[in-house]
Measured scan of single mutants.
Amino acid sequence: KKKYVIKVYFEDTGKEVEIEAESKEEALEAAKRLAEELGLKIKKVEIYP
């Protein structure tokens, strides 16, 4: 089964997080949740198959 690796870059902090997920949708949801939890804004998202 294919996994996606999503790199999320946050504004202000210069922080980046990698998330593995089964689908792009799932990964983007996780990225949004994470940003909310951390109180950060997402600057850029890169998706690698």
Rank of each mutant, 00 (worst) to 15 (best):
K1W: 01
K1P: 12
K1V: 12
K1G: 14
K2G: 13
K2N: 13
K3V: 05
K3R: 06
Y4H: 13
Y4F: 10
V5K: 11
V5P: 01
V5M: 06
V5H: 11
I6W: 06
I6V: 07
I6P: 00
I6H: 01
I6A: 08
K7H: 11
K7N: 09
K7T: 07
K7Q: 03
V8S: 00
V8Y: 03
V8A: 01
V8E: 00
V8D: 00
Y9P: 00
Y9L: 11
F10E: 00
F10T: 01
F10V: 01
F10D: 01
E11M: 05
E11K: 06
E11A: 06
E11P: 02
D12C: 07
D12H: 11
T13G: 15
T13Q: 08
T13H: 09
G14F: 15
G14R: 03
G14N: 11
K15E: 10
K15V: 05
K15P: 08
K15C: 01
K15R: 06
E16N: 12
E16H: 10
E16A: 12
E16R: 05
E16T: 12
V17C: 05
V17P: 01
V17Y: 07
V17F: 11
V17H: 11
E18V: 10
E18D: 13
E18Y: 04
E18M: 10
E18C: 07
I19M: 14
I19K: 01
I19G: 01
I19E: 01
E20T: 14
A21P: 00
A21M: 06
A21E: 06
A21G: 08
A21T: 13
E22F: 08
E22H: 13
E22T: 06
E22R: 04
E22N: 11
E22A: 09
E22V: 08
S23G: 03
S23Y: 03
S23Q: 02
K24I: 15
K24Q: 13
K24V: 15
K24N: 15
E25S: 03
E25Y: 05
E25F: 08
E25I: 07
E26N: 09
E26R: 06
A27N: 00
A27M: 02
A27C: 05
L28F: 07
L28W: 15
L28S: 07
E29M: 09
E29Q: 04
E29H: 13
E29F: 12
A30F: 06
A30T: 10
A30G: 13
A30C: 03
A30Q: 14
A30D: 06
A31F: 03
A31V: 13
A31P: 01
A31G: 05
K32I: 11
K32H: 15
K32E: 10
K32T: 14
K32Y: 08
L34D: 01
L34E: 02
L34W: 15
L34Q: 03
A35Q: 03
A35I: 04
A35V: 09
E36A: 13
E36G: 15
E36L: 12
E36D: 11
E37V: 04
E37N: 07
E37P: 00
E37G: 08
L38S: 08
L38K: 05
L38G: 04
L38R: 03
L38C: 04
L38V: 11
G39M: 04
G39R: 05
G39Y: 02
G39N: 11
L40S: 08
L40Y: 11
L40H: 09
L40D: 08
L40E: 09
K41Y: 04
K41S: 14
K41V: 14
I42F: 02
I42M: 03
I42N: 00
I42H: 01
I42Q: 01
K43S: 08
K43G: 13
K43C: 04
K43A: 15
K44M: 12
K44H: 15
V45P: 00
V45M: 13
V45I: 03
E46W: 02
E46P: 00
E46F: 04
E46S: 09
E46T: 07
I47R: 02
I47T: 04
I47W: 11
I47V: 06
Y48C: 10
Y48Q: 10
Y48N: 14
Y48P: 06
Y48V: 12
P49C: 04
P49A: 02
P49S: 04
P49R: 02
